[in-house]
């Protein structure tokens, strides 16, 4: 464990908590893409299947459980409890266009042709594009609530910090995982235009509005 990965994990946890609190407190999931949340739940389920068979550390197991519970809880809030506030008219990204290619790629490019490893690879590839429905929804509505932009900033920062963690681990342990690194770079690049808008607008107290 290194400080970059720890801060990255905490940033990820912060993002998930921000979103959960936003939905719970405002009793509304307006502006939030339920499809992205479903994809994130799928990412955690397929990645953490080894939760009980492969103990790494208490921290690792506890965080996996927290991610699973909070992401499924968010999906529950969006599609059941506060379903009436779910904006399905703007959340129209065809996620099968993500899941099918990612599923195919995980069979073709992986470290080990075993079920657990293929599902882990699927999860890594899926996570890199899972935010697309959310970004697509914001581009359709043309704006995002400030709290949602904080959520996205924390979420985008987590994988950016993981990239620093991979550089650090390469030089200190000689560890590198090309699949995770390439997918992590794609994932972080997808946030770049949002990062620009967040830093130039939201941090100056303006509403996040995408150029129409």
């Amino acid at each position: 464990m290194n400080v970059f990965r720890l801060v990255g994990d905490l940033s990820h946890l912060l993002a998930i908590i921000i979103l959960l609190l936003k939905i719970w407190k405002t009793r509304s999931c307006a502006g939030v893409s339920g499809k992205s949340q479903i994809l994130f739940s799928l990412v955690f389920i397929t990645r953490y299947l080894d939760l009980f068979t492969n103990f790494i550390s208490v921290y690792n197991s506890v965080m996996k459980i927290i991610y699973l519970v909070t992401s499924l809880g968010t999906v529950y809030l969006m599609y059941f409890k506060f379903k009436a506030t779910y904006d399905s008219n703007h959340d129209t990204f065809r996620i099968e266009f993500l899941v099918v290619p990612v599923g195919g790629l995980s069979f073709l490019v992986n470290h080990d042709f075993t079920p657990l490893e293929i599902l882990w690879t699927f999860s890594i590839y899926l996570e890199s594009v899972a935010i697309l429905p959310q970004l697509f929804m914001i581009s359709k509505t043309g704006e995002a609530e400030t709290i949602t932009s904080h959520y996205l900033f924390a979420l985008g920062s987590y994988r950016a910090l993981y990239i620093v963690n991979w550089v650090y681990r390469y030089y200190t342990e000689g560890f590198f995982d090309l699949i995770a690194i390439v997918a992590g770079c794609v994932q972080t690049i997808l946030y770049c235009d949002f990062f620009y808008l967040y830093i130039t607008k939201v941090l100056k107290g303006k509403q996040l509005k995408l150029p129409a």
């Binding site: 990820h12 790494i56 690792n60 882990w120 560890f175 090309l178």
Partner: peptide
Amino acid sequence: RVLGKPHDEL
């Protein structure tokens, strides 16, 4: 080469 199997990152 991928070391540190199994996956020890979240």
